[in-house]
Amino acid sequence: MSHTAHIPSHRKPRQRASKSALRAGVAGGVLSTIAVAGAAGPAQAEPVTQTIEMPTITSGLSTTVAASAQATQQVALDLETQAREDAAAESAAKKAKKAKAEAVRKAEAEKKAEAAAKARAEAEAKERAERASRTAERTTLSAAPSSSSSGNSASASAPSSAPSSSSNATGSAASIVAFAKAQVGDAYVSGGTGPNAWDCSGLVQAAYRTVGIDLPRVSQSQSTAGTQVSLDNLQPGDILYWGGAGSAYHVAIYVGDGQFVGAQNSSTGTVQRSMDYDRPSGAVRVL
């Protein structure tokens, strides 16, 4: 055995051939890159002078916008037209409704007018008949004695058709009562003295004039024209008054059986009523 067999060697181990080759290749590549860069380094790049034209889109866009605007305008016109048509239809409907209502109103008014005209005609015919009857009664009364002194003959001259309520009236009282009752249904007119319209004192004055007695014209004076009598001791022909004696505001003629005849007011005209309807304040006896 050699005496140097166990002495370690101080030399580095050899590198493998593959690693050496790899390193050689990398070094060669780096050197090549440097060489290329050096060769190209001094040269300057030429500026790009070519102009690239972009496609023009303005013309197409304007056409689209114009078409859109036209479409929008048309829609607006259509809406406006529709609104006008709707408004016209609504107005026509309102006018038709109003015309119908007016036609109905006119028809009702004409119907009422016809009914009123018919009622007036009937009332006028009735009034003419009543006036004719009253005229006949007045003609009869005009033949009655003009003085209360001829009481018996006046009683005989009183109309046989006088109401039974005045059957207990005699002489001039019967004539006064008959005249007053003949005016029932006549109109009331302030200041009226007949022959078909009266106020309260005008009727009383006319009734007494048929027997030749001239009374004062107004109710205040008529309420003191005779002897004051109690309302419990009345006789046909007595003058009833409302208010105070000498300041009465209304007068009427007592016709018997608790009834009176008076020209009341414009609503009722001349009527015959019970004393309970409107109790008088007092009475005077002229006959």
Rank of each mutant, 00 (worst) to 15 (best):
3 H>R: 10
3 H>V: 09
4 T>Y: 12
5 A>R: 10
10 H>S: 14
10 H>N: 12
12 K>I: 10
20 S>I: 14
24 A>K: 13
24 A>M: 09
26 V>D: 03
27 A>E: 12
27 A>M: 11
27 A>G: 10
31 L>N: 00
34 I>T: 10
37 A>S: 11
38 G>H: 05
38 G>D: 07
38 G>K: 02
39 A>Q: 05
40 A>N: 08
41 G>T: 06
41 G>H: 14
44 Q>D: 11
44 Q>Y: 07
47 P>L: 12
50 Q>F: 11
53 E>W: 06
53 E>I: 10
54 M>K: 12
56 T>Q: 15
57 I>W: 12
57 I>R: 13
59 S>A: 15
61 L>F: 09
62 S>M: 07
66 A>T: 15
66 A>Q: 13
68 S>D: 06
69 A>V: 14
71 A>T: 15
74 Q>A: 15
77 L>Q: 15
78 D>H: 03
79 L>Q: 13
79 L>G: 07
85 E>W: 03
85 E>Q: 11
95 K>S: 14
96 A>R: 02
98 K>M: 09
101 A>F: 01
102 E>T: 09
103 A>Y: 02
103 A>C: 00
105 R>V: 12
111 K>T: 10
111 K>Q: 13
112 K>H: 02
113 A>E: 11
116 A>E: 12
116 A>T: 01
119 A>T: 03
120 R>I: 06
124 E>N: 07
124 E>M: 04
128 R>F: 05
128 R>S: 14
128 R>A: 15
129 A>Q: 07
132 A>D: 14
132 A>S: 12
133 S>R: 14
134 R>P: 02
135 T>W: 05
136 A>G: 08
136 A>T: 13
137 E>C: 02
139 T>M: 06
141 L>K: 10
141 L>H: 09
146 S>T: 10
148 S>M: 04
150 S>C: 01
150 S>L: 14
152 N>F: 11
154 A>P: 09
156 A>R: 14
158 A>Q: 03
163 P>N: 00
171 G>T: 05
177 V>M: 03
178 A>W: 13
179 F>P: 03
182 A>T: 04
182 A>W: 02
182 A>C: 00
183 Q>T: 10
185 G>R: 00
189 V>Y: 02
189 V>I: 13
194 G>P: 12
195 P>M: 06
198 W>M: 01
199 D>R: 02
201 S>D: 06
202 G>Q: 00
204 V>I: 07
207 A>G: 05
210 T>E: 15
212 G>Y: 05
212 G>H: 03
215 L>F: 04
216 P>S: 01
218 V>Y: 07
218 V>L: 10
221 S>G: 00
222 Q>S: 00
224 T>I: 15
225 A>P: 02
229 V>D: 02
231 L>V: 00
233 N>S: 15
236 P>A: 01
237 G>P: 07
240 L>F: 09
241 Y>V: 13
242 W>P: 01
246 G>C: 08
250 H>P: 07
253 I>R: 01
253 I>D: 06
254 Y>F: 13
254 Y>Q: 04
257 D>H: 02
258 G>T: 01
264 Q>L: 02
269 G>V: 08
278 D>Y: 13
279 R>E: 10
280 P>D: 01
282 G>R: 03
284 V>G: 01
287 L>N: 09
